[in-house]
């Protein structure tokens, strides 16, 4: 078994129009910037994929990563909890112009819907959002005297994930708070593609330290020294860079 992939272009080659794509990260922390940029490269070269439904906690910041994916016109709908950031201009303009749809989900509900999708649980009840606008139209039940809102699982065709170490079997570790949504999204997608800072031999990761077991991963591509969204934004980077 060897899940390693030779390069980023190969890693994103299977993503087609209209797919639901989960993208890991919380803001820039744990965001797979290089995989996202490879997807933009393919769109610029071929016109595909487009009309994507993207699941992420946020809606991009500045003009790199998820914001650049939206700016390229590849995203039809975003499912997220917090579409604001230091520089949310790309999403904000498209949303207010009616060019992109938004499904707003409380952050903990988003995480649990993704977990449920990966765990084979079609629906669950949560106290979150009861009595608010975000619970409208959803079934409510009373358990032990409290009211709970029914939420449905969330699954994806593809997850794009950033991890730290990975082996050819797909076992993964993460780096600090870069973990966030990434392990959940690995579970919830039919195909999970992971960029790792280093591919190591099986056995190099202590079995006690594996965070995502390889069963949840289909492809691993090595991206040494990955870029950080915050650093790119401080340098006022734009992706793709404007031609000279």
């Amino acid at each position: 078994m060897d899940k390693t992939l030779p390069d980023l272009a190969t890693a994103v080659a299977g993503i087609t129009d209209g797919m639901t794509v989960m993208i890991g990260g919380f803001g820039g922390s744990g965001a797979p910037i290089e995989l996202i940029h490879a997807l933009i490269d393919r769109f610029l070269a071929t016109g595909h994929p487009k009309n994507l439904v993207v699941v992420n906690n946020n809606a991009g910041n500045g003009h790199v990563g998820l914001a650049a994916l939206i700016e390229a016109g590849m995203v039809a709908k975003l499912i997220c909890s917090f579409p604001r950031s230091a520089d949310p201009v790309v999403f904000t303009e498209r949303y207010l112009a009616g060019h992109i749809a938004l499904e707003l989900v409380p952050q903990g509900t988003l995480a649990e819907r993704i977990r449920a999708g990966g765990a084979g649980i079609p629906a669950f009840y949560t106290p979150t959002s009861f009595g608010t606008d975000l619970a409208k139209g959803k079934p409510v039940e009373v358990f032990e005297g409290r009211s709970y809102v029914q939420e449905r699982w969330l699954k994806a065709d593809v997850a794009l994930v950033k991890a730290h170490l990975g082996d050819r079997l797909g076992n993964l570790t993460y780096r600090m708070a870069g973990r966030n949504f990434n392990p959940l999204m690995c579970m919830a997608a039919a195909t999970t593609i992971v960029q790792v800072s280093r591919i190591v031999d099986p056995g190099s990761i202590d079995p006690e330290a594996v965070i995502t077991p390889g069963i949840f991963v289909q492809g691993v591509v090595e991206v040494p020294n990955p870029q950080q969204e915050e650093d790119l934004n401080r340098a006022k980077a734009v992706y793709p860079e404007a031609a000279e």
Binding site: S81, P106, G108, T109, S129, L134
Partner: peptide, 10 residues
Amino acid sequence: GVPAVGGAMD
């Protein structure tokens, strides 16, 4: 404007 809820409801 753009609605945003984050983790507040949880």
